[in-house]
Design a protein around this nucleic acid. Sequence first.
DNA 1: CTGAACACGTGATTC
DNA 2: TGAATCACGTGTTCA
Lengths: 209, 209
Amino acid sequence: MDTWWSEMETSSMNDHNFVNQSETMTPFNELPFNSKPFSTFSPPPPPSSVISNYSYSNSMPAKNQFENLNTFKVVKREVPSGTTINFSSSVNSMDDSDFGDIEAMRFGAAVTTTTDQKKSYNRTSVQAQDHVLAERKRRERLTQRFIALSTLIPNLKKLDKATVLGDAIQYIKQLEEQVKTLEEKNKPEIPAAKRPRLVSSCDDSSSSG
Amino acid sequence: MDTWWSEMETSSMNDHNFVNQSETMTPFNELPFNSKPFSTFSPPPPPSSVISNYSYSNSMPAKNQFENLNTFKVVKREVPSGTTINFSSSVNSMDDSDFGDIEAMRFGAAVTTTTDQKKSYNRTSVQAQDHVLAERKRRERLTQRFIALSTLIPNLKKLDKATVLGDAIQYIKQLEEQVKTLEEKNKPEIPAAKRPRLVSSCDDSSSSG
DNA sequence: CTGAACACGTGATTC
DNA sequence: TGAATCACGTGTTCA
């Protein structure tokens, strides 16, 4: 039982089959995720049927608590009814004129933020959408690791990412010290010159009176 | 020597004094951060002297490797020479008309993304800037924790955040197993219910020998 | 209302 | 080249 996410790693971006890999993890019901932030556990977000072809498995049953704290923001404005914009975007940075850009992008046009001379690279529609998708997947993987890490830490108070990280650091240090102490206690026969030296908390001070 | 970031935690958002707290950490020269991503270590970014009053300690000496992989993006377009916009923004979502909004925001006006009916809350300039600042600080704290965590993990190959997280998980599991094995080997007589709990550093176990 | 935290889309960079 | 990663600013929610 090692690297529980290996199956996710091995399966590349074929499908969204990484959704049901949470079975190998500890059930989230026993997670201590109910204190502060990312624990909202709102019902699966109806992704705004206006556009909503998010390429995101439309019936995703809220994989974990992290999933929808701030559910993904789909453009909610009045599209010309049949536009079927295949492109997600944040609510801002979208003007009515931008839709022209996006529609142009869908045909392979390059996007240059409506102007020129400020950027030195272009990106087509498919590339942009793939970029969004890849980034979303990366974000998700990261969040998953955060959850898995938080399950290992005892006495976890807050569920911040920073706290999870910090407590993991402390826990690792504590475990290392514990291992060191136990190993020293386990082998008292080695004459302290072969010892790998590290910390000398309580190993000697009782030799040869 | 515990929780090396405590001094950062205690010092609230008074100043940007959290910059020079990296002394308490292990020197980054010995960090294994030189393989893939966030290790660029580009020279301290000249933040585009056009605007550049980023409220960010203008002479920041590149605190760590994470700091400037993608150095913060300041608006680089031709401002009307004397605008001194006190507001950072991503390169996109900024049109020439948006500058009017920002200038209005500096006087306490509300920003509604140039239009209406799509957002239900407003935000003044100070609030927006404070939001940006707070988020940046949070991001920085998180990155710092990532660095600190990565220093604890042995044989760390990639320096991804996901890899750091995943290897931390594996390492914690390994350490826990190690502790368990050592404890069993050490004292097979105590039925594991008398064990006090976590670390039992070295207080006794040598008396009446 | 304010501060803290999260997810999101996006530009940039690296290999 | 294309895929992966990162930091950034932003919208949003909650205590």
